[in-house]
Design a protein around this nucleic acid. Structure first.
Length: 269
DNA sequence: GTCCCGACGG
DNA sequence: CCGTCAGGAC
């Protein structure tokens, strides 16, 4: 990629220097508990820090260990998640807790090394948990870090992930991974923002109003209160039956709801 | 309208 | 590779 070691060192200095003066004090940075870090990372997937803070604090107070979460009911978990968005994440986090307790003896870090077995945990999240929990010499490239690298090293926005992750490994100050990644996050979120750089995120989202996402959320809210009939949902949400049926199909497949005959209930644990 | 410490299925 | 998934802040 012909990026000099000199340039890399300069970027490291600049970002670490920024971090010493402007670092954010976030609740999940006060712990090295892999379970709590995992909760924070799943919540932070495509969700702003400011919106995660209270959800995270409430969550870890209510379910302080992965064993507590594994014993929780699906309804409790979804109730606590509602409002954060991308509700499938809650189901997957709950399932992950159960799998980690039953198949990994509660060892979150061990599970992160076999993240392909844990749905809802990809390479980014698996590495991030290990980095922030144990200061592991791994790299994780999120939307902030991607933007920083593109800007600092003059890369095209079309740069493949593979190259970004390779470059990230060259930039990693070994033995200082946790601080380095926190520094990158803060530099990207506070200083080198999407607005100031004009660099667009990898995936853009469709409009929310009138979308299936909006209807999915409305359905979940109703079913969370009590079981509903198909007709009741159709009347309340004012959506055509065919579309409602399709949406209910996807919600069922993702194990958020359960359909029995014409009744719709929250999916059991 | 745009973005946010991604992951998944097709 | 491409579309989908919440919700609020700006």
């Amino acid at each position: 990629m012909q990026i000099s070691q000199k340039k890399i060192t300069a970027v490291q200095r600049k970002i670490l220097s920024f971090y010493r003066q402007h670092h954010r004090d976030l609740p999940w940075r006060k712990t090295t508990d892999p379970y709590k870090i995992l909760v924070s990372e799943v919540m932070l997937q495509q969700t702003q820090v400011s919106r995660v803070i209270t959800y995270y604090s409430n969550w870890v107070r209510r379910w302080p260990t992965i064993q507590h979460l594994a014993r929780a009911s699906r309804a409790e978990v979804l109730e606590a998640w509602m409002g954060l968005g991308y509700n499938t994440r809650a189901v997957r986090l709950h399932q992950a807790a159960k799998t980690i307790v039953s198949a990994f003896d509660g060892d979150v870090l061990g599970a992160m090394q076999h993240y392909h077995d844990i749905r809802g945990v990809g390479r980014y999240t698996a590495h991030a948990v290990q980095i922030f929990a144990t200061n592991a010499n791994l790299v994780a490239v999120d939307t902030n870090i991607r933007r920083i690298f593109i800007k600092e090293f003059y890369l095209p926005e079309s740069v493949p992930d593979q190259q970004l992750w390779q470059l990230a490994e060259r930039c990693l100050p070994k033995g200082n991974s946790r601080t380095w990644h926190n520094a990158l996050m803060d530099y990207g979120a506070l200083h080198m923002t999407a607005k100031t750089t004009g660099i667009k995120p990898k995936t853009s989202q469709s409009r929310f109003s009138g979308s299936d996402r909006q209807i999915r959320a409305a359905i979940l809210r109703m079913v969370l209160k009590q079981d509903c009939s198909f007709k009741e949902l159709q009347r309340q949400l004012n959506v055509d039956p065919q579309r409602l049926d399709t949406i209910l199909g996807s919600l069922s497949k993702e194990q958020l709801i359960l359909r029995k005959n014409t009744m719709i209930a929250l999916h059991p644990d």
